[in-house]
């Protein structure tokens, strides 16, 4: 196993974050993890609907990046960015209804899998055709730029999705137009079963930035403070009119592509290595070491989240699915 990057052993302390915010970051990461665990259990019990795509290992990247945005900045998350949804103030009940296609789902049961859109929170989820939302994110902020509004779009793509042609067209257009777009490449080492060395031949995906004439950086995606700081800089640059940035955040997809996939193609030592860098565990340990939270406090937070999660599941699974006739409605909005 070779690693493409030199990692720091310790969390790279942010100079911007206050301790209250650090607690928030941990809460969001824990929510993402517990939501994930709950969905995994539901899948194994045959109570989930469709595929269940774990975000395990992605907590620091999703949470740290979304936390770097202002509330009015549009967010274009992927299916493993449930942590970013929590940062945006999405509640467990709504997300669970969405995932299980129950009444009150934000998408009326028309779609699931983290593809949620919510104008009020400026969240625009992905479609399954990876990379398709990068030009959409670029267009979103093009509109703001034309109106003189200084919003910044954050969009996510995987190491696999970064190979889609949309990536190039969108990043090139965004670079030419100097659009305020921050693209997070969540390099979690595998695109379904395909390792990175069968997907691209460059050392770092952020090196592509050179080809677009923009900034690019590769970072440890398991360090939430480093992710936050890096994204914050990119967001500020974008807002100041300096154009897009590519941030490649390295992490490990700790589960299969989805829960049906045992990921037996992943070498064990690779998982063991990344297990040592578990984004939640290492941040929790760092918060304890730095006297920001005690182990008991963290256990307490985790317990509350777990209880809320279980209570929510028990309520939501009992809800009916939407009226079948909804399936024929809403193809067009009113003209």
């Amino acid at each position: 196993m070779t690693l493409p990057f030199e990692f720091s052993e310790t969390i790279q302390r942010s100079d911007i974050l206050r301790d209250e915010q650090r607690k928030e970051l941990l809460v969001h990461m824990l929510k993402a993890r517990e939501f994930d665990a709950a969905m995994g259990r539901m899948y194994r019990q045959g109570r989930a609907l469709g595929g269940v795509y774990s975000q395990l290992g992605n907590e620091a990247t999703a949470v740290g990046s979304a936390y770097a945005l202002e509330a009015n900045d549009p967010l274009f998350p992927m299916h493993r960015d449930i942590g970013a949804h929590f940062v945006r103030g999405c509640d467990i009940d709504t997300l669970m209804r969405n995932h299980l296609a129950r009444v009150g789902s934000q998408m009326r049961g028309t779609d699931g899998t983290g593809h949620y859109g919510d104008h009020s929170k400026k969240i625009y989820g992905n479609v399954s055709h990876l990379g398709a939302m990068i030009p959409v994110a670029a267009g979103y902020v093009l509109a703001d730029k034309m109106r003189g509004t200084k919003s910044v779009a954050m969009n996510y793509i995987g190491d696999g999705g970064a190979q889609v042609g949309d990536f190039h067209e969108a990043m090139n257009l965004a670079s030419v137009q100097k659009l305020p777009l921050v693209l997070i490449i969540e390099n979690n080492q595998y695109a379904y079963s395909t390792p990175t060395d069968e997907q691209f031949a460059c050392d770092k995906l952020s090196d592509r930035a050179i080809g677009y004439g923009i900034e690019g950086v590769t970072i440890d995606g398991t360090d939430v403070e480093l992710v936050f700081d890096t994204c914050r800089q990119a967001v500020e640059r974008a807002r100041a009119g300096h154009g897009p940035t590519i941030i490649e955040a390295l992490s490990m997809r700790m589960r299969g592509h989805a829960e049906h996939d045992d990921a037996s193609y992943v070498p064990k030592d690779m998982l063991e290595y990344w297990q040592q860098r578990d984004p939640v565990d290492r941040y929790a340990a760092w918060l304890i070491d730095n006297g920001i939270l005690t182990a008991d406090e963290i256990d307490g937070i985790r317990k509350v989240i777990k209880e809320e999660m279980n209570e929510c599941i028990d309520t939501v699974v009992e809800l009916p699915m939407p009226d079948p006739e909804e399936g024929g409605k809403g193809v067009f909005v009113a003209s």
Binding site: Y124, V136, A138, Y140, V141, D166
Partner: peptide
Amino acid sequence: TAILGAAIGSALN
């Protein structure tokens, strides 16, 4: 792709 995607994004906005 970028033209049509950007059109969609700006239309959403």
